[in-house]
Design a protein around this nucleic acid. Structure first.
Lengths: 220, 220
DNA sequence: CGCTAAGCGGAAGGGGCCATCCACTTACGC
DNA sequence: GCGTAAGTGGATGGCCCCTTCCGCTTAGCG
């Protein structure tokens, strides 16, 4: 598992742009980031453009589809997410590594309403996305293996359960105000207890979900 | 706790209608029920009308607002939900009563995509709704009390946790196909284990949510 | 400094849904 | 039967969003 090479060059597609265009591109990205975080993934494109102080056309020229915008916006965050999981892996205590990995990711989803949606949504053409997600998935699988080997994580835990947790957490995180934070933390606390090996009682089978296989209805 | 008096007369507002009008009203209700179940609470009104084989105007005349339609459609289901909880209460084993109450409600939400949304959404003017929900809430509180007294449900369980579970479960139930069923069951199984008294480790505080206080952004 | 291609923004076309209005039809009391 | 009020459906206008097009502006090279 390498350090954090993840994102090679910042934005390879912003290279040949004229100076003013590149500037606008950045403003759009900032505006989109903020809009997605507070209002979710389906804010009107026009709202993003207005917030960025550009015309709609500029937005569309730079990012022909909403997905391409989402992809670019969340590349960083996805990267940070992977980094968080890798960082958690450094913890010598396998259970604590597992726990903090989950808690960090959930904290991120709490801070940014669009994040999990983006994370969980399959963007067929977003190659980079896939790669980053695959990396996060690999790291997480490693954390899981260690926690299981140490006898602290129940043996019947499956990666799909993480997706379950993320999707559930996302729903709670979408709640207004206070509820989101308190609810998310509490849900995670409950589930972490349920994941502990000591308490393991038989479970129904896991759904056919993988971080990689996830298909969530793509943000229209 | 009374038997099941709940809904007194079937539809008091369908009384003075002409025969054909009443017939159409029923068709609308059927169509809406099916539409809400499969496509969620925000299907176009026109789709419901078409499915019912009536014009939009008829739909709007009978149910001036979307909410009034939702209210009428889910009154039965909400009633069935209350009945399920009451039935679960009859179980002499407090924990099994608690467990089956939750499982039944979750099964209902799995079967009908609009159900939980309706259940969790505050319809300010839907008095009857409130009354039914209050009844369910009372029964559930009783089940919780018994399970806690028996030392099987953790003492720090709060009613808000049920809402949490419902909202989380709802998100999973909205998944396409196979995932919904398997995921919902598994999530519920995990949470039920976390709710058991034996495993209780400290929890973060519960969010300010009550079945009664719930405010979910009303179906626009 | 001037030319040109790159970049720009607003307007406009298109689609979906909501909610209302109105000219026609029909149940049903007498 | 028949008159009438209740009932009906489709057409309509309003709103919001997406996406494209087009005439104007401007960066930046030579």
């Amino acid at each position: 598992m390498p350090g954090h090479p993840s994102r090679i060059a910042p934005p390879p597609e912003a290279a040949g742009l004229r100076a003013d265009a590149r500037h606008n591109r950045d403003r759009i990205l900032d505006a989109a980031r903020e809009a997605f975080a507070t209002r979710g993934l389906d804010v009107p494109m026009a709202a993003i453009a207005r917030r960025a102080g550009v015309g709609v056309a500029t937005l569309y020229r730079r990012f022909p589809s909403r997905e391409s915008l989402v992809t670019e916006v969340f590349a960083d965050q996805l990267d940070a997410c992977g980094a968080a999981v890798e960082e958690a892996m450094a913890d010598p205590d396998p259970w604590r590594a597992f726990r903090t990995a989950i808690e960090k990711v959930c904290a991120m989803q709490l801070a940014d309403r669009g994040f999990t949606a983006a994370f969980l949504t399959a963007f067929p053409e977003a190659v980079d996305f896939e790669r980053l997600r695959a990396r996060a998935e690999l790291c997480f699988a490693e954390v899981v293996r260690r926690a299981k080997d140490a006898g602290q994580l129940r043996a019947d835990f499956e990666p799909a359960d993480l997706v379950l947790l993320l999707k559930a957490g996302n729903a709670i995180a979408a709640e207004p105000g206070e509820v989101a934070a308190a609810g998310s933390r509490r849900l995670v606390a409950y589930l972490l207890q349920a994941f502990r090996a000591e308490h393991a009682e038989p479970l129904p089978p896991a759904p056919p979900l993988g971080l990689g296989h996830v298909y969530a209805p793509a943000a229209r």
